[in-house]
Design a protein around this nucleic acid. Structure first.
Lengths: 200, 200
DNA sequence: ACCTGAACACCGTTCAAGT
DNA sequence: ACCTGAACACCGTTCAAGT
């Protein structure tokens, strides 16, 4: 393991963790694994990242700094609520509408629900899910940092939001009365408002 | 630790796990903790529940068996929040856990999502959905009438809740980390709290 | 200030051995 | 068939001790 001399210990840890995440988003990023990869002790890692959660957040922030510069979440000229809704909508957009939504769920269905789950595809799905979870969590972290969101368990909040997103996205694949747009908007707003305004 | 003689080992484990969940739905339900409470070895627990996930699923199923007999919504001795949560859980019970959940979604999938929607099955699905919607709306009406719920658009609220239920129920069919139990409870509570406590 | 690595108190799972 | 409990390979966190 080369030491990448010249770089600070903290940077080496972060770099190691980020590249591990890059190679496999489903990876565990355990203290020992990251520390070993970075060539530092677990104690040193803990010194810079007092908690595992802190490390994960740093990795997430780092990843998205690289990947998503045009993310609306950073547009501080707009209210936090609007920005978060915008970002969540992006996720739904990706899920598509009508025909496209049905195709997307078909894919998920035939690979992850229909067959008896093997360890392999279980892991594959969990990686996907964690990826989505982390993205939402990252948005919440940004809002937290600027004080738009009360102290709280962001990963719990993210879980809540992704569950709502799943519900909305499957609704797009199922038959529905008239425009689901209104319904969807209302529900999305309700979910976001709950996260922003309640102690939870 | 009394052994509750006469009960099978498997039952004791399940009972212990369920009562632990009852005392604290956020509890970890670790192998050792549950085994100790049940007065059996970890090996025995593993014999009956080959994986931690299997145990969690059994607990979930058991919980719903216990709480589903009547419609709790009218039981004014309990807080509105608890009653509503109870009723929503009944809906989830129908969705099942594990294998059963996957089968249920398979059904929905092959009839309503995969095929190009005909007018006929569109109508069939919409009927199902309206039924679910009506049931939830009815519960909200009951709470409204006794003043536990602020004036507002109950059908909108019901739509929000059914969307969350859909998200939770599909999560039961998809692979998941061991903790769906906690996640599900948290999300359900969050959704109900939002409906009960916010102007919406 | 930064870093080390052992120690602590946990996990879930496996498995030879017993009845 | 059912059960035991030790063992394995992990966790995340703490901390006395070093530089």
């Amino acid at each position: 393991m080369e030491r990448e001399t010249g770089t600070s210990s903290r940077d080496r840890v972060l770099q190691a963790a980020m590249s591990m995440f890059g190679e496999d988003p489903g990876a565990r990023l355990s203290v020992r694994a990251v520390a070993a990869r970075a060539g530092v002790s677990t104690g040193s890692l803990r010194y810079h990242f007092p908690t595992q959660r802190a490390l994960q957040d740093a990795v997430l922030a780092g990843i998205y700094d690289v990947i998503t510069p045009g993310d609306r979440i950073h547009d501080r000229s707009a209210p936090a609520r609007d920005r978060l809704i915008d970002c969540l909508r992006q996720v739904l957009t990706f899920a598509g509408v009508g025909e496209q939504a049905r195709a997307a769920w078909s894919e998920i269905f035939t690979t992850f629900i229909e067959p008896e789950p093997t360890d392999e595809n279980r892991a594959a799905y969990l990686a996907l899910e964690r990826e989505a979870q982390r993205r939402v969590e990252y948005w919440l972290t940004v809002l937290s940092n600027e004080g738009a969101l009360a102290e709280g368990d962001n990963s719990r909040r993210a879980r809540f939001l992704t569950t709502v997103l799943n519900g909305l996205s499957i609704a797009r694949a199922l038959p529905s009365e008239e425009s689901i747009l209104t319904t969807e908007t209302e529900t999305l707003h309700a979910a976001v408002d709950h996260v922003l305004n309640s102690r939870f």
